[in-house]
């Protein structure tokens, strides 16, 4: 790994200031940033450790809960209230990566993690999403990629994003009081290859789920029985008569699905047609689970 400086600011304001500097990188648990620095696919002038700056912990917020940005994913998974009232979130948190990575990874870090695409993470290639001019996946092996054509065919990896999207979660940053989780994400463009819609110096401080659903569930398929990023994950939450469905693993960004036509806009690519079947199955399973 290339040398960098390290800071552990004690306040959001100080963290924001440090993150505004060129080359500064936000670090939560480090589970996404450090492998990228090790592979040399990202560079850091300074690593800004946010764990002392942003809140950690799960607090009641009216009917709902407010989850501090630095809350460990494992703490979400094992919180009894979460399991009882926000099952989809507890299940999604419990499915993230491996036990150790859940102990390390933070909620905000999980939501903001980079895609797992094996070309994006290839140390010897610079793909379109990393600022190059080729989406190697489209011309190469994209068996695990998305169902949606585009400049980049990598898929959203965050299990928590699917669950929180289904739960109508809102995000709080140091600059904005609250906005829907979907707005945390943006499609990368030729001019800006980032998929996270945060300004320089802006950092997530909390995620709030306004109210518990009447029922919720997370359905997920990986490549083995444990410790696998999702091939596809579908979160469902029923609020009265309305069911919200959200999926990861099928398109660039976490995606709200139309329960009546979950495959809409997801035609599949040469090597990913099989994922349509998987998405259909997981959607039906999730819908069945929430009644």
């Amino acid at each position: 790994m290339k040398p960098f400086t390290y800071s552990a600011p004690a306040s959001v304001a100080e963290a924001a200031e440090r993150l505004a500097a060129p080359g500064a990188r936000a670090m939560g648990g480090g589970t996404d940033l450090l492998p990228q620095l090790q592979r040399g696919i990202r560079r850091a002038g300074e690593v800004v450790d946010l764990r002392g700056a942003v809140p950690a912990g799960i607090l009641a917020a009216g009917q709902g809960v407010r989850i501090g940005a630095a809350t460990r994913v494992a703490d979400v998974a094992r919180d009894p209230d979460m399991a009882a009232r926000f099952a989809v979130l507890a299940q999604a948190a419990g499915a993230v990566a491996s036990p150790q990575l859940r102990e390390m990874g933070t909620v905000a870090g999980n939501l903001c993690q980079a895609v797992r695409c094996w070309y994006y993470r290839h140390p010897d290639l610079t793909c379109w999403l990393r600022g190059g001019d080729t989406c190697y996946a489209q011309v190469g092996d994209h068996r695990k990629h998305g169902l949606e054509p585009g400049d980049c065919i990598s898929v959203a990896p965050s299990d928590l994003a699917a669950a929180l999207l289904a739960l109508r979660a809102v995000v709080t940053t140091n600059r904005r009081e609250s906005f829907p989780l979907a707005d945390l994400y943006r499609k990368a463009t030729a001019g800006d290859r980032s998929t996270i819609a945060l300004d320089d110096g802006e950092l997530v401080t909390a995620v709030t789920v306004p109210e518990p659903p009447d029922a919720s569930a997370y359905m997920r398929a990986g490549e083995r029985a444990a410790w696998s990023f999702a091939l596809c994950g579908v979160a469902a939450a029923r609020f009265g008569g309305e069911v919200r469905l959200a999926a990861i693993g099928v398109s660039n960004l976490p995606r709200l699905l139309d329960p009546a036509d979950p495959l809409a806009g997801l035609p599949g690519l040469e090597m990913t047609g099989w994922k349509r079947r998987l998405l259909e199955t997981l959607t039906q399973d999730a819908l069945a689970a929430v009644g």
Binding site: H122, D124, Y136, D141, R143
Partner: peptide
């Protein structure tokens, strides 16, 4: 898995 266009292991 070997990438057909670059010949590298992905």
């Amino acid at each position: 898995v070997v990438d057909p266009t670059t010949g590298t292991v992905v």
